[in-house]
Design a protein around this nucleic acid. Structure first.
Lengths: 239, 239
DNA sequence: AACCGCTTGTGAACGCAGGTACAAAGTCGC
DNA sequence: GCGACTTTGTACCTGCGTTCACAAGCGGTT
């Protein structure tokens, strides 16, 4: 509807609108490139990159085309050039302050996960409701009481909030984060958060992942014979 | 290939083939229902469930329709009845043995995450390459050396493998799991695993999630107004 | 017993993502 | 300098997922 009109206006100034699925893959490409940069190779073809990233070569080229032409025909993509292009598209290399609420086992694991820091995500605030945990040092940061949420967000200008609390309190924590100015939330609690417009939420639901695998597993070998496999003649998959 | 032939046979006995996206949501509905079962209410409407799960009511009804008619028109869905239906569809309540490779902070967090056990997923094998960690007890299970991988999988008949190792060794661990008989893998390592046909892999990439949020954040405030928000009159919904 | 309102279940349209195939373009070899 | 090969970038198509809208069905009420 307005999409076509929009693109007319935007095509020149801004490259294009990038689908969210593509953005997620761009991040993957960037990491693959980081591994490749160590090697001497100065160029990669879409086929090589796609194989390393586990996607279709044509899809990869389409993804990259959202950034405008960034390869050389007949040669491939410059590793360093593409890295710069991707980092720029994904928001630069500037350090992005994050606050993490709920320092349980999962929260602690995320707090000192090296993969975040290397991509510019830095946890500048760790918050927990349990007085026992307050004062602990996790991943180079000290756990503070949940009451400090608003001041921590304000002081650090954190734009991203990560919620690893129990499900019951996730919504209230979310509300406080949003009120404090956080506009991007990564939610590990198994609830659907409701947020006002202009706030982005991404949900990671670990038990759902396992449940999907269990379903696929069950679906694969049908009725799952109770003891040993009798192989009852033909009919293959009964249910 | 055989898919079409399959559906021909199955169409009558079993409703249909269930899309993977739907399966993921069914798991969510099941958890929401578990919370509702505590309350006295015997019935829920699609609207209530959808609101709690954060989805569209019509989509929820379509999802449930894959299980055949399971609601009563004019009333809604029986909470207990729907729970049974969903648990059956998702593979019953039987305990599903899982092995977890890589007992770092993240692995340890997953190993004693209560949300898994309550849904029937039980970690019967914890494996790590670090001799320092071998022998530790995490979540009611003892960490064993990675060399025991094959025997652990064989003894416990584990059907699901979870990989929380560093990226460099994830593929070799994956290969060994598959060779040992594991056919469902949940991968937290930031690499694309290649597996033979008949094996399902689901990937959880935490830094990609953050990176997508960072992109949306940057995209939202475009040129990033340096100091205060000007609020440029109308323009209503920007995106 | 019949009506009314509410809720389910489903058919159709829309939009989006992924895959295929081909044309444009640039480099390497001769 | 020219031709052939390689690789990108893109247009088209197909299939999936999601949403809208409506008919069918059931309970409560009079």
């Amino acid at each position: 509807m307005f999409g076509s009109l929009w693109s007319l206006l935007v095509t020149e100034s801004r490259p294009r609108i990038i689908p969210e699925a593509t953005v997620a893959r761009l991040a993957v490409y960037l990491r693959v490139l980081a591994g490749l940069a160590g090697d001497g190779c100065g160029h990669v073809s879409s086929g090589e990159l796609a194989a390393a990233a586990g996607v279709n070569p044509a899809g990869l080229r389409k993804d990259l085309s959202y950034l405008g032409p960034c390869g050389v025909r007949g040669v491939g993509y410059s590793v360093s050039g593409l890295r710069e292009r991707l980092t720029a598209a994904l928001g630069g290399e500037r350090s992005r302050p994050c606050v993490l609420v709920g320092i349980g086992r999962l929260g602690a694991a995320l707090a000192d996960y090296a993969g975040f820091a290397s991509r510019g995500f830095q946890f500048v605030g760790l918050l927990d409701a349990d007085p026992e945990r307050v004062g602990d040092r996790v991943g180079g940061c000290t756990v503070r009481p949940i009451a400090d949420l608003e001041s921590v967000v304000a002081d650090t200008e954190a734009a991203i909030g990560v919620i690893t609390t129990p499900a019951e309190v996730a919504q209230s924590v979310c509300d406080r984060l949003v009120a404090a100015g956080v506009r991007s939330i990564l939610n590990f609690a198994p609830v659907a958060l409701t947020v006002p417009g202009g706030v982005d939420v991404r949900k990671v639901d670990l038990s759902v992942e396992l449940q999907v695998l269990a379903f696929l597993d069950q679906q694969r070998d049908g009725g799952r014979p109770p003891v040993t496999v009798p192989v009852p003649a033909a009919l293959g998959a009964q249910r």
